[in-house]
C-alpha cells in the first residue's frame, strides 16, 4: 500500500521511514497530482501556519477534501491534526475543516514544556511512547468522532471514519504501531472500492 506524506514542510522523512517499517511504501507528496497515486495521506508535524499557507497556495485544500471525500484515509499528526480540524481555538482560520473537532494550538505551553510519555491508545494493546512537541490538544469532538486516547483528561488521539488525528509524534520513535493502524485503514478503504 502506497501512503503519501504531505511534503510542504515538516518531519516528512520520519513518516516515510515509519510507514516502511509498518510494511507500506511511503512517498513524499509535493503536488496535488500525486494524490491520485496514493491510498492514504499523512499530514506531518511541522509548523501549521506554514503548512496551511503553502496548502492554500498550491491548491491542496480542495484537493485533500476531495481525496478524503472519496473515503481515502488521512492521518494528521501534531501540526497535521491542527490542519485537519473543523475549528481552531482563538481567532485562527481553520484549514481543511475535515474532522469534527475543535483544536487548541500550543496547548501544553512552549518548548520547555514539551515532553514524552506512555499512552494507552484504543486499538493498540500495550502502551505507546508518545513525544509531544509544542503540541496541540482536541478540546471538543462531534458525535461521529471516536476518542482513542486521552492524557490527563484531554483528548490526544481521535478517529472519525477515514480520518485519524493525534497530538504527538509517532514518527519520532521506532514504535510504528499507529502507522500500522493507519495502513490497515487504507487497506480497508481500498478493499471497499
Amino acid at each position: 500500500m502506497r501512503i503519501g506524506v504531505l511534503a510542504l514542510q515538516g518531519a516528512v522523512a520520519e513518516h516515510i521511514r515509519s510507514i516502511g517499517l509498518a510494511g507500506g511504501e511511503g512517498v513524499a507528496v509535493k503536488t496535488v497530482e500525486q494524490l491520485k497515486e496514493i491510498g492514504g495521506l499523512i499530514l506531518p508535524g511541522g509548523e501549521s501556519t506554514t503548512i496551511g499557507k503553502l496548502m492554500r497556495k498550491y491548491g491542496f485544500i480542495d484537493a485533500i477534501r476531495e481525496f478524503a471525500g472519496e473515503g481515502k484515509p488521512v492521518f494528521g499528526t501534531c501540526a497535521g491534526m491542527i490542519v485537519l480540524a473543523d475549528k481552531l481555538e482563538g481567532a485562527e482560520e481553520p484549514h481543511l475543516r475535515l474532522m469534527d473537532m475543535t483544536v487548541a494550538r500550543n496547548a501544553f505551553g512552549r518548548q520547555r514544556e514539551s515532553f514524552e510519555t506512555d499512552l494507552d491508545v484504543k486499538g493498540i494493546d500495550t502502551p505507546l511512547r508518545a513525544v509531544f512537541i509544542r503540541a496541540p490538544l482536541i478540546k471538543e469532538v462531534g458525535s461521529d468522532v471516536d476518542v482513542l486516547c486521552s492524557y490527563k483528561d484531554e483528548i490526544v488521539t481521535a478517529r472519525q471514519g477515514n480520518l485519524l488525528a493525534c497530538s504527538y509524534h509517532p514518527e519520532l520513535t521506532d514504535d510504528y504501531r499507529l502507522h500500522e493502524y493507519f495502513l490497515k485503514m487504507a487497506e480497508e478503504a481500498a478493499a471497499k472500492h
Binding site: Q9, G10, A11, G45, G46, S114, E116, T117, L172
Partner: peptide
C-alpha cells in the same frame, strides 16, 4: 512524563525541516 529529553529537543528541530 519527561521534559527536555534528547528526543523532545531534537524532535523540535525535525519539525522545522523544509522551513525558513
Amino acid at each position: 512524563m519527561e521534559t527536555g529529553t534528547s528526543r523532545v529537543k531534537r524532535g523540535m528541530a525535525e519539525m522545522q525541516k523544509g522551513g525558513v
